[in-house]
Design a binder for these strands. Structure first.
Lengths: 208, 208
DNA sequence: TCTAACTTGTGAATGATTTCACAAGCACCC
DNA sequence: GGGTGCTTGTGAAATCATTCACAAGTTAGA
């Protein structure tokens, strides 16, 4: 398969959002123009994005909402439920563990880890915070391939090493640190301060 | 000024991180290759990024850590402190308000808003949750030009309208919803479910 | 059956970003 | 002072992503 751009994948996720909403409101078909309006892009872009994966529409008519929804779910790998573990039971970890946006979209938080003895054993909902040392031994039980790092920056690398060793294949890193991982592990960074700095730059250099 | 790519600005922020760390550990000069290693890019990319703004290095020697740090701070608009308001005192809003990564980098949370009467008036640290209705009347006091939306998706658009009206010029949107704003307002989205879906896609389509 | 109004899928063109490659500057040492 | 080893800054080339533009398919209505 040809390599697909990151930007394309992001847009596919957005299209899927809109399709789900359209489906719930009973809409039967949808055009690339409609999808474009929602994803803040152009109809040509929508069609190009989809064309990497096949042809899903009918000329003159548009796309079947139900069929395209299901195709996109398949493309994005969302037909299965993904077990996810979170490392770091601080403010951000807690918020993420209880965030419905994950559950609702097929990502189920199956375990939360921390290294602080005062946190280990405490419960939220049905989850008990576990000792980070049991990461490896839990692997067979949790079967998670995706992990979220929500620790302070200083611990991020150690946690990443741990995760890679426990067989995790993809990491969503919220810690403000660049982490190094073996090539079979995928990392995506979410760095909130970076986003704010982008806004600061734009506001500062707006007048041209 | 020529338009600068988003990707360039992100990398500048990363370089700045590394420079600050290098400065603290007493390093005097640094080469584009060093910066590249940290930012997961190439030395040519680093030099090109910087070249949009001037020439900061000395051939044969590299960059002065102190000078480049200060230049990047200036470019990114980080010499001033930015007052920031947060709308939404739920899990995510709370976590963000107390997140040191913001304070530490020149973004000071000066107010938190919600519309739930049970939350209004509660305190965290030195911040009291305010009624969202007082957004406009507070504007002169807070002087914030940047706002963070941390509400459920359903309220995001209404909040954005409110913010635009109160004179906010840049929005960091954590709500999983696309918001529409007037052209003088800048929006950047952070959508955590989207990031996970990107990982799901990559894991699913890895074997080519 | 014919026409009009839409809409897709896709090569080709354009635009943006990254990488290459190298002249030129600087420091150090003999 | 001249040679050696680094490193920057930057046009040019290559790669990657988006937009254009249009043939071809579909529906609906007369």
């Amino acid at each position: 398969m040809k390599r697909i751009a990151d930007s394309t994948v992001r847009r596919l996720s957005l299209y899927l959002r809109y399709l789900e909403a359209a489906g719930e409101s009973g809409q039967q078909t949808i055009s690339s123009g409609d999808l474009a309006r929602f994803g803040a892009t152009t109809s040509a872009q929508v069609r190009k994005d989809l064309s990497f994966f096949g042809s899903f529409g009918k000329r003159g008519l548009g796309y079947s909402v139900a069929e395209l929804t299901s195709s996109l779910r398949g493309i994005l790998g969302l037909e299965q439920e993904w077990p996810v573990i979170i490392v770091g039971a601080g403010k951000i970890g807690t918020a993420l563990a209880q965030y419905h946006g994950f559950r609702d979209r097929g990502f189920r938080v199956v375990a939360v880890y921390d290294r602080d003895p005062r946190k280990i054993g405490t419960k939220w909902d049905s989850l008990t915070v576990r000792d980070i040392e049991s990461l490896e031994s839990d692997a067979a039980e949790t079967r998670a391939r995706i992990a979220v790092i929500a620790t302070p920056a200083a611990q991020a690398q150690a946690v990443a090493d741990h995760l890679a060793h426990a067989g995790i294949r993809a990491i969503l890193n919220f810690a403000p640190a660049q982490i190094r991982v073996p090539p079979e592990v995928l990392v995506r960074n979410v760095n909130m301060a970076l986003e704010l700095e982008g806004l600061s730059f734009a506001l500062t250099n707006r007048e041209r």
